Amino acid sequence: MSWPLHLDVFGAESAPAVVLLHPIATRAEAWRLQIPVLARRFRVIVPDLPGHGRSAALPPGAALHDYAAAVLLALEPLGLREFSLAGLSFGGMVAQAMALAAPSRIRRLVLAHCGAVTPAPVRAVWQQRVADAQAGGMAQQVRPTLDRWFTPDFLARAPATTDWIGRMVADTSVTGYTTAVHAICGLDHIASLGRLEMPTLVIAGQQDRAVSPAVSQALAACIQHAELRLMADAAHMSHVEQAATFTETVDAFLSP
Rank of each mutant, 00 (worst) to 15 (best):
G136N: 14
Q141V: 02
G115Y: 04
A124M: 12
Q206N: 15
A183K: 03
V202C: 14
T172I: 07
G166M: 00
T162C: 06
Q141H: 05
A158N: 14
G186N: 04
R148I: 01
H182D: 13
T175N: 13
P152K: 08
A170H: 11
A158L: 05
A112E: 04
S192D: 15
A120W: 09
W126L: 12
V174S: 09
P121H: 10
G137A: 07
M198G: 11
A183G: 05
L201T: 10
A133E: 10
R129F: 05
V181Y: 04
V142R: 13
C185P: 00
G136H: 14
L201K: 07
L155G: 08
W149R: 03
G194W: 04
P121R: 04
A158I: 08
P121K: 08
A133C: 07
A112G: 02
D147P: 04
W164V: 07
H189W: 01
H189G: 05
V181P: 01
I184C: 13
W149Y: 13
D163M: 10
H189Q: 12
Q127V: 03
A116I: 02
I203V: 10
A156G: 06
T172A: 08
V142P: 11
G166C: 11
T178F: 00
A183W: 01
V202H: 03
P144R: 06
S173V: 10
F154L: 06
T172E: 12
W164T: 11
G136Y: 13
A135E: 12
Q127E: 15
V169C: 07
C185S: 07
T145P: 08
V142S: 02
V125M: 12
T200Q: 08
D188M: 03
C185F: 03
L146Y: 05
V130N: 02
R123H: 09
V181D: 02
V117D: 11
C185A: 08
T118K: 08
P159F: 11
P144I: 02
Q140N: 14
D163P: 04
I184H: 05
P199K: 00
I190T: 15
F154Y: 15
R148D: 00
L193E: 14
G186K: 06
G205H: 06
F154W: 01
Y177P: 09
V181L: 01
V174I: 14
R123M: 12
G115T: 02
M198L: 13
